[in-house]
Amino acid sequence: MFTLDQIRSFVAVAEELHFGHAAERLNMTQPPLSRQIQKLEKTVGVQLIERDNRKVALTTAGKAFLADARKLLVSAEQAPLTARRIARGQAGVLRIGFTAASGFSVLGTLLSTLSEQLPDVDVDLREQVTREQVDSLINGEIDLGLARPPIDHELFESRLLLSEALELVVPEGHPLAALDRPVAGADLREVPLIMYSPTKARYFYDLAIRNVPIQHGNVVHTVSQILTMVSLVAAGRGVALVPASAQRLGVAGVTHLPLADQTTDVVELHAIWRRGQRNPALHRLLSALDGHVSST
């Protein structure tokens, strides 16, 4: 295999087309320079440079080899810098799992922070529910998850990124919108309700039944995605309990109403990562997010 010294020698001769000038450029004498070229040609298996007493010229193969040789030298010079940048978390790849709901709440802010603080870090985004994110973190398939509680703190470290209120979304012009007060559980007794799936959207299902006296006989649809839920409300199919950030979906034909006897931070979204995670880019991002918790 050829060496970088041989490549440097070849590039110098190819650019100078003069062994004496190339030797001076490399701070060496001509005999070792000639030996470097000979060893390179032997390794490559073709003549790269034609030389006689009057001139030095590249062969056709030499001209083709020169382009790749220059790229090799650039890569060799960049490699240590890239390694240092990756070690400092300034470059590399960060694989992020996110729920659909986090896509319209904190994901945009997170990506903006990455672009500003770590512009040379490539981001690999994967839409996954919390359960899938947990599996991917355990298997080393992602570096960071944007997930809902509960969190296994023996396996994962976490940071609260968003806390927000649970709201009621109703069709535009619905009688509940005319109450001029927060909606109470008693107001929902005879109202068709679009509810979360207890298996595919367990976090929001548990949250809803824990905070509002749900009349299960009123449930007309069971879905797992918030966008689907709000779209059904817009179609007049019922009302639904959604996080306040769902307003950012911009679905027309709906009104968001506050709920009575509710705190403003019942819905949580956390950044989670496996304990012992060593990706420097992850730790740079976490440092950039220090103290950043959003409330909606």
Rank of each mutant, 00 (worst) to 15 (best):
F2E: 11
D5E: 15
Q6H: 05
I7G: 06
L17Q: 14
G20V: 03
L33A: 05
L33Q: 10
L33H: 12
R35M: 14
I37K: 00
L40A: 04
L40M: 14
E41W: 03
I49S: 03
I49G: 00
E50N: 15
E50M: 10
R54M: 12
K55I: 04
T60Y: 12
K63Y: 03
A64L: 15
A64I: 14
L66K: 08
A67S: 13
D68M: 13
A69M: 05
L72D: 00
V74Y: 11
A76Q: 04
P80E: 11
P80N: 06
L81I: 11
T82P: 04
R88D: 01
A91P: 15
G92R: 14
L94D: 01
L94M: 07
T99K: 06
F104S: 07
V106S: 09
G108E: 14
G108Q: 15
L111H: 05
S112V: 09
L114G: 01
Q117H: 12
P119F: 10
D122C: 03
D124W: 11
E127I: 07
V129Y: 02
Q133Y: 04
Q133H: 05
Q133F: 01
V134F: 07
D135Y: 08
S136G: 04
I138D: 14
E141T: 02
I142V: 11
I142E: 11
D143F: 01
L144A: 09
L146G: 01
A147V: 13
P150G: 11
I151T: 12
I151R: 14
H153C: 04
L155M: 06
E157L: 13
L162A: 01
E172Y: 02
G173R: 11
G173A: 05
P175Q: 11
A177G: 07
A178W: 06
L179N: 02
D180S: 09
R181M: 05
V183K: 00
A184P: 00
D187G: 08
P192D: 04
L193M: 09
Y196V: 00
T199D: 10
R202H: 06
Y203N: 07
Y205E: 04
D206K: 01
D206T: 05
I209E: 11
I209L: 08
R210I: 00
I214R: 03
H216L: 10
V219C: 02
I226T: 15
L232T: 03
A244I: 08
A246W: 03
G250V: 08
H256K: 11
A260G: 00
A260K: 09
E268N: 10
L269N: 02
L269Y: 04
G276P: 15
H283C: 05
S287T: 15
S287W: 10
H292S: 12
H292M: 13
S294R: 15
T296H: 14
T296M: 09
